[in-house]
């Protein structure tokens, strides 16, 4: 069986800008793939090629085994796409707009009504159905565009920054919706919000300058952080300073440094230092508030792989 989404060697250049370079991956049913990357990394360009809006310079995209260049219209029947910026026809009402989409998707009569009812319920649009989209808040506009992508209950969903511009509650709702749908679908979402990856993605691809620079589950990516398996101790500064020498002397400790909460102990990659650190603290007789292991932070990995080495943290534009 072919994967739901198969992308092979996608490349796209705009003038002198290489927007997407040799991007390949597969997404199976049940997976939520997060496209992660700073602004301008090439996420939207890649999505535009996957959805057939933009023709790649080279490479292929297959949806359910069908090459989208060979069958541009047929391959879109089972695809829902929310483009960047969540465009919709603003002079229409959500009901009118979704009615139009239903018609294009081949639904009429009571089937169209049912589809619209389901999609508006999923995206909680019930209260604004008769109001021109123009007059709606950003959050509602985004949900109108999301409802459009969900209307025909497609098995392949491509959502470009689905939670951008939503408030924290709305973000949570959209993430819950994506999680609920996930088992039945193959989903790609793009985001530059790292917590979103942890919240909804089963896998993440980090893109920088058009290239895939990391690919793995959120846990795998976090384990690439140099804070992974580090031990952080919460205690007063004095206590920490007294502990430092003993901890630094341990095997498997790369370095201990003071931070705002107390002390952070970086391990040599792969070594488990929690117990040795506990022993040192116990033997010292000093009291500490908390000792625990860190998972590593996605943010550190993100920064490490997307900022070209040599430039400092302030050297590049967009922070995640």
């Amino acid at each position: 069986m072919a994967a739901m989404i198969e992308v092979e060697g996608l490349c796209k250049r705009f003038g002198s800008i290489q927007a997407v370079v040799d991007v390949s991956f597969k997404v199976e049913r049940g997976e939520v793939l997060g496209f992660l990357g700073p602004n301008g990394a090439g996420k939207s360009t890649a999505m535009r090629m996957i959805t057939g809006f933009l023709e790649p310079d080279s490479g292929t995209v297959r949806l359910e085994g069908v090459d989208i260049q060979d069958q541009p219209i047929a391959s879109r029947q089972n695809l829902g796409y929310m483009p960047e910026g969540a465009p919709s026809y603003h002079e229409m009402t959500p009901l009118g707009f979704l009615g139009f989409i239903a018609g294009i998707r081949g639904f009429s009569g009571s089937e169209a009504e049912d589809r619209i009812a389901t999609a508006t319920q999923q995206t909680q649009l019930g209260s604004v159905l008769y109001q021109p989209i123009d007059t709606l808040s950003r959050g509602f506009k985004r949900r109108v565009a999301l409802a459009q992508a969900l209307l025909h209950d497609p098995e392949i969903l491509v959502l470009d920054e689905p939670t951008d511009g939503l408030d924290p509650n709305q973000k949570h709702e959209v993430r819950t919706l994506i999680q609920e749908m996930a088992p039945r679908k193959a989903i790609i979402i793009s985001t530059h919000i790292l917590e979103e990856v942890d919240a909804v993605c089963s896998r993440a691809i980090i893109i920088a300058h058009g290239r895939i620079v990391a690919d793995g589950t959120p846990d795998e990516l976090e384990s690439r952080s140099d804070r992974h398996m580090g031990v952080s101790i919460t205690a007063t500064r004095e206590t920490c300073q007294q502990l430092m020498a003993g901890i630094n002397a341990l095997d498997g400790v790369a370095e201990a440094e003071l931070d705002s909460r107390g002390l952070f102990v970086k391990p040599v990659r792969g070594s488990d230092i929690l117990d040795p650190v506990r022993v040192v603290v116990g033997q010292s007789g000093l009291s500490v508030a908390d000792i625990r292991v860190e998972r590593g932070r996605l943010e550190d990995v993100f920064r490490a792989v997307t900022i070209p080495s040599g430039t400092g943290p302030s050297g590049t534009g967009d922070r995640p």
């Binding site: 535009r48 057939g52 960047e84 294009i104």
Partner: peptide, 14 residues
């Protein structure tokens, strides 16, 4: 201008 062309031309419409 508004980007709806991307919506329109990724529907099953030529």
């Amino acid at each position: 201008q508004t980007g709806t062309i991307e919506l329109l031309l990724t529907l099953p419409v030529s």
